[in-house]
């Protein structure tokens, strides 16, 4: 079981992130009662009563054990601010974020891999140029800027899409960004593999360039994808957060942003640990996919 050790280490990492996030939030000045107090003109006595009701008067250790104990039993507790179950709020937000991330990743992979593959198969056409354009695009243009420009052009001037609540533009913005990160390194790797002897024998056998790229070259280039996957995932998480806030999507990013602004610690700590778990699981999946695709590491 070569996967057991990395899985265990990653799970320990997730646990440590839970502790870290918990401590980080307790260091932030002000709590949910202060926020509610400013909004609702609560008296000093009312604020104190509310703190006791929410369990915020207990020490950090007690609060932490309460959270961990509940989480392990499947209960993430109530939102301090909205008095709703945290699991319910996450359950509502999670599909939005997963949809955005999955579509963006799918588009990015499809676009990046196909452009790089066609460019490798037809080095004389416009495709290598497209690889370079994608690469420059993703390095030089932050998704925040591209998203705003997209709002201006497609929502305001052309009026094709609503400003808020649509998912098409965030998916395009993040997907093209991911494609740019993939296409260039993959193209370099593909060109290198194409120059190796076993490709020459495949060509001598009479295989066409398309079949060679699909059957012999791409599986061997899977290592490049798993090498850039960590970077892409980190960018995808941060990008999804920004896009959700920018386009007013009700996902985990918007939830986390509101929880920070409202000092809603029970929501925030569960969301952040979920994010960390998501990145960890995705990294393991990328590793697994690499093992399955690349004959040399199988």
């Amino acid at each position: 079981m070569r996967l057991a050790a990395p899985v265990l280490r990653q799970l320990l990492t997730a646990g440590a992130i839970g502790v870290l996030v918990f401590l980080l939030m307790r260091v932030i000045p002000g709590d949910v009662v202060d926020v509610l107090g400013i909004e609702g003109d609560l008296t000093e006595a009312e604020q104190q009563a509310l703190r006791i009701e929410l369990g915020l008067d207990a020490g950090w250790g007690t609060q932490f054990l309460r959270w961990v104990g509940g989480a392990l039993a499947g209960d993430l507790g109530l939102s301090l601010r909205y008095n709703r179950p945290v699991a319910e709020m996450i359950g509502y937000a999670l599909p939005h974020t997963l949809t955005l991330a999955a579509l963006a990743l799918g588009l990015g992979l499809a676009l990046g891999v196909s452009v790089a593959a066609v460019a490798a198969a037809r080095p004389s056409g416009v495709w290598p140029g497209l690889v370079q354009v994608l690469n420059v695009w993703s390095i030089a243009l932050p998704t925040f800027c591209v998203g705003l420009a997209g709002i201006l052009v497609f929502s305001i001037w052309l009026g094709w899409l609503p400003v808020r609540g649509q998912i098409l533009m965030p998916v395009l913005v993040l997907g093209i960004d991911i494609a740019g990160q993939i296409a260039k390194p993959l193209h370099e790797e593909l060109k290198e593999i194409l120059a190796t002897p076993f490709i020459r024998s495949a060509r001598a056998k009479g295989l066409g360039p398309g079949a060679i790229v699909l059957r012999h070259v791409l599986p061997n280039a899977a290592g490049v994808l798993s090498a850039v996957s960590g970077l892409i995932l980190a960018g995808l998480v941060s990008g999804a957060l920004t896009m959700e806030v920018l386009f007013g999507l009700p996902g985990l990013g918007s939830l986390a942003f509101q929880a920070i602004a409202g000092r809603d610690w029970t929501v925030l700590q569960s969301v952040v640990v979920l994010f960390a778990l998501g990145v960890i699981v995705a990294n393991l999946l990328a590793d697994l996919a690499h093992r399955l695709a690349d004959p040399r590491v199988r």
Binding site: T13, A16, I17, L20, V21, L24, M25, V27, I28, P29, A234, V237, S238, L241, T242, A256, F257, I260, A261, V272, F275, A276, V279, I280
Partner: peptide, 17 residues
């Protein structure tokens, strides 16, 4: 550990702090 957290979230939390 810190690098496993989304950087935007970390920046936000520090900013609030």
């Amino acid at each position: 550990l810190i690098r496993a957290l989304p950087s935007v979230l970390l920046g936000l939390a520090l900013m609030v702090a």
